[in-house]
Nucleic acid binder design. Structure first.
Length: 872
RNA sequence: GGAGAAUUAGCUCAGCUGGUUCAGAGCACCUGCCUUACAAGCAGGGGGUCACUGGUUCGAACCCAGUAUUCUCCACCA
């Protein structure tokens, strides 16, 4: 049977993933082996695979496959996140399309819809991960709202409450008027926005004067409860103790003094709106000001605004500006840029809002979490993220953990008829608790709010093994702490920090040892890939087009550790080409006829060289993996296979056209081929498995798969043979160069004499003859006249050419040029050596090195001069 | 406003403790080849004042200072 000329990934991909699953290779249960554990950052349950997931999960899969082949008990736990706000927003939108308003539903009915939605769309992204080849233990798949995981969340809330970390109180929080919920500080994204700075005139009571105040938010003037000036501002001394009128509504408010006000900014006067600005709130507290909240939960104005009731805040802003203008109370309007907070999930502009929320105290919890990273127990890769991690940990604020949503874990707090509350797991326990505290247990109802999604994600490395509720279970004891966490730097604080905090609080151990922070996938222009920009290719389509292995290789080639990656489709092409290269190397070997015979000297030499080169590469690759430089590890694999294996080793042993190959050599080739496949498998799982099972390599037992084959181990290697072969490569390359530059057909065999000094290259005689197409190869002791010569390592080589092929002039010029260069080089070296201070200060071996360089250059010049003379 | 990082070939990036692994890789490019594994290929080749300016040193892509540009994170100036 003849194989297709190009590799067709489709068949192999469908076949082998199913096969691996069937044979249970992804499964992991505790045993005597060393565990290697990764918990997958759970994608949003309603998510669809994007390039970021693709990168992230490819890296994890490479790590897990390699560990598995290295004999570790590799366990990769997949799962999804319930993503409170995002999912609830999607469900609300879906219901709206069906003409259903969330407000018209009870909590239970809404949740029923949400669960239906989750069942319908929840599995998509995990299916897509299968296409990528992700070798997760699917039987361990978890969802952050699975009963056991939710239970762990509730337990944790109670635990933290008992430990004194959780409290309830009225605070200024980030309010998302679209999601209609509070958010944590981390969920607020600040963006620079072009705004208008309105200079508004406030009339002074019982006077014709007015005072001008700059604001970007005229719609909030109805909530003003004071005007503030800096006590040292002489311009406004006359205003002290005065009362001013809020424009449009003429409410009377005092002028207060506080040096918080910057005299240089705006007009030096500040309108104080305690309900709608954090600073103003604090200022209001300090000066005992009234708080007038004029906004509804959805960002529309309420009756306290007195005017424009029911209008959206942004429409109201324009309307108020217009009204002020008409009333002659706008002095001027300037363009102004400022930072505005937006909801990370809904992208709605955040309103600072005063409300009753649940918080988690962070200061104390953060300390051990910082220590882990500081003392190296947890390594951040790359390290550059440590600085911002430290900064965040040292300046962490209390975490608002309550959300005014239904989708999520409902806070286990209970209220009685008097609105007193207790924290308890069940209603019964709540009753007991109330009674214990001597409070009424009548009219008990549960807290409406749910917990921040990240509160449950923070438990992920523990809760997937049921370690929160049952820390003594086998799985948890075996797999925890996990090894590597692969995630995006954007969620270092959201998620990574909180996992460390929670993990430590429960176990006094870190949840993982290494945190590999991947870059952000950007397009060629450096823009972040996003749906809204439409610049993100669909990973599934890419895989269809280039094959999964090709895309995996493409992703990794373009992703230096920790830096953003400029994704370019040409990387996928390169990956596809590489897969094809391996495929064709295989076709070559498969096509060989065999003759029962031992290997020739030349074949043995080639094999010996490749074996050592292979071992050398394995060491290099291992080092790259150790420092999490996956793209370098891949590139080293790529070069080993493409250059060393295909271009040199296979070419060296390749029999002449239609000639058979010696059986011993074929056996060796097959052996190395399999080793090379094993080395490539973590990067290109499908192609390697496909080839592994070809009859060329003999019969395979059902479980004899490359996915569980032995990963090449570190072995010593003979550097001398690698160096020697480099000389051979140079010689061949030079002869080809001469051929190329003189337009001599590769079919014309050239004579070659090699004058070796202290290297024996005779064992590569056949190889050189074949690859450089030499008619007559001789090893000589002295200079051969009438030749083109060059230097290859320590050998001088002469190619005797027919007279008509020799361009004496060109050759003379080439050699002269080279001599000139060497002379210049020699001058610089001699200059260095004659510098006394250099000889005195530099390390002896450096000086020795310079002397070697000098001798070397002199020898080369001598040879070249002789060559030049020989041209006459 | 604060902190951190980056700037090396057309592109994406390596370059560890200053000294032949110091100017590298892959891709792209140019030239020649449809040579029976592969044109998704083969052979060969040309590309760089290492952002700029000073300093330290016998010696700087590398260390220091400043400048410019870019990026990221953090931060409540109306």
């Amino acid at each position: 049977m003849s194989l297709a000329k190009t590799y067709n990934p489709k068949e192999a991909e469908n076949k082998w993933y199913a096969y691996w699953m069937e044979k249970g290779f992804f499964r992991s249960t505790p045993d005597h082996r060393e565990p290697y554990t990764i918990v997958m950052p759970p994608p949003n349950v309603t998510g669809v695979l994007h390039m970021g997931h693709m990168l992230n999960n490819t890296i994890q899969d490479v790590l897990i496959r390699r560990a598995r082949m290295q004999g570790k008990n590799a366990c990769w736990v997949p799962g999804t996140d319930h993503a409170s706000i995002a999912t609830e927003a999607k469900v609300v939108a879906m219901l709206k399309e069906q003409g259903i308003d969330k407000k018209s539903l009870t909590r239970d009915i809404f949740l029923k819809h949400a669960w239906e939605w989750k069942e319908k769309y929840g599995g998509i992204i995990l299916k897509q991960l299968e296409k990528l080849g992700a070798s997760c233990d699917w039987e361990r798949t978890k969802f952050t709202m699975d009963p056991d995981l939710s239970d762990a969340v509730i337990d944790t809330f109670i635990r933290f409450y008992k430990e004194g970390y959780i409290y309830r109180g009225v605070r200024m929080v980030n309010w998302d008027p679209q999601g209609k919920t509070a958010l944590s500080d981390e969920e607020v994204i600040r963006k620079e926005v072009n705004q208008k700075l309105y200079y508004v005139r406030y009339k002074i009571k019982d006077s014709n004067e007015y005072i001008v105040i700059a604001t970007t938010r005229p719609e909030t003037i109805m909530a003003d409860t004071a005007i503030c000036i800096n006590p040292n501002d002489e311009r406004y001394t006359h205003l002290k103790g005065k009362t001013v009128l809020v424009p449009l509504i003429d409410r009377e408010i005092p002028v207060i003094e506080d040096d918080y006000v910057e005299m240089e900014f705006g007009t030096g006067c500040l309108k104080v709106t305690p309900a709608h600005d954090l600073n103003d709130y604090e200022l209001g507290q300090k000066h005992n000001l009234e708080v007038i909240d004029i906004l509804n939960d959805d960002g529309t104005l309420n009756e306290k605004a007195q005017i424009l009731i029911g209008e959206d805040r942004f429409i109201a802003r324009k309307t108020v500006a217009k009204l002020l203008e008409e009333a002659g109370q706008i002095e001027k309007i300037e363009d102004y840029k400022s930072q505005v907070g937006f909801s990370e999930r809904t992208d709605a502009a955040i309103e600072p809002k005063l409300s009753m929320q649940w918080f988690c105290k962070m200061e104390e919890l953060a300390k051990p979490a910082l220590e882990y990273v500081e003392n190296g127990t947890i390594k951040l890769i790359p390290e550059k993220f440590f600085a911002s991690y430290k900064h965040w940990m040292e300046n962490v604020k209390d975490w608002c953990i309550s959300r005014q949503l239904w989708w999520g874990q409902r806070i286990p707090a209970w209220y009685n008829e008097k609105n007193e509350w207790v924290v308890a797991k069940t209603e019964e326990e709540a009753v007991q608790e109330f009674e214990k505290q001597g409070k009424s247990a009548q009219g008990i109802r549960q807290e409406e709010d749910v917990l921040d999604t990240w509160f449950s994600s923070g438990l992920w490395p523990m809760s997937v093994f049921d370690g929160v509720r049952n820390p003594d279970n086998e799985d948890f004891k075996y797999y925890y702490p996990t090894n590597d966490l692969v995630t995006a730097p954007e969620i270092l604080f959201f998620w990574v920090a909180r996992m460390i905090i929670m993990g430590h609080d429960y176990t006094q151990q870190p949840p993982f040892r290494n945190v590999y922070l991947t870059g952000i996938v950007r397009d060629k222009l450096g823009r972040k890939m996003s749906k809204s920009l439409g610049n993100s290719p669909d990973p599934i389509e890419l895989m269809e087009q280039y094959g999964t292995d090709g895309v995996r290789v493409g992703m990794l080639l373009s992703s230096p550790a920790g830096n953003d990656l400029m994704f370019d489709i040409s990387y996928c092409e390169q990956g596809r080409n590489f897969a094809n290269k391996i495929w064709n190397a295989f076709r070559l070997v498969k096509g060989w006829e065999t003759i029962e015979a031992p290997a020739t000297v030349a074949q043995k030499s080639a094999a010996y060289w490749f074996e050592n080169r292979f071992n050398q590469a394995v060491v290099e690759i291992d080092e790259h993996f150790k420092s999490y430089r996956l793209s370098d590890a891949l590139m080293a694999t790529y070069k080993l296979i493409w250059d060393d294996f295909c271009a040199w080793y296979l070419e060296l042993v390749k029999p002449a056209y239609q000639a058979p190959i010696e059986s011993e050599t074929l056996a060796t080739v097959k052996l190395y081929f399999q080793k090379v496949l094993a080395l490539a498998h973590p990067f290109m799982p499908f192609l390697t498995e496909e080839l592994w099972h070809d009859e060329l390599f003999g019969e395979r037992q059902p479980k004899d798969c490359v996915i569980v084959a032995t990963y090449p181990e570190i072995r010593p290697f003979d550097e001398a043979i690698i160096k020697e072969f480099e000389i051979v490569q140079q010689i061949i390359s030079e002869v080809r160069n001469i051929r190329n530059s003189k337009g001599i057909s590769p079919k014309v065999a050239l004579p070659l004499a090699i004058n070796t000094t202290d290297v024996d290259l005779t064992k590569f005689r056949d190889g050189i003859t074949k690859l450089a197409n030499i008619a007559d190869l001789s090893f000589v002791q002295e200079k051969v006249t009438g030749t083109v010569s060059f230097l290859a390592g320590k050998s001088e080589c002469y190619v005797r050419l027919d007279n008509e092929n020799v361009d004496i002039e060109a050759e003379r010029e080439r050699i002269t040029k080279e001599i000139e260069y060497l002379k210049g080089f020699l001058v610089s070296v001699e200059k260095k050596l004659s510098n006394e201070r250099f000889v005195q200060n530099a390390k002896p071996e450096i000086v020795q090195n310079e002397q070697n360089k000098k001798a070397d250059a002199e020898a080369k010049i001598k040879i070249l001069k002789e060559s030049l003379a020989g041209l006459e």
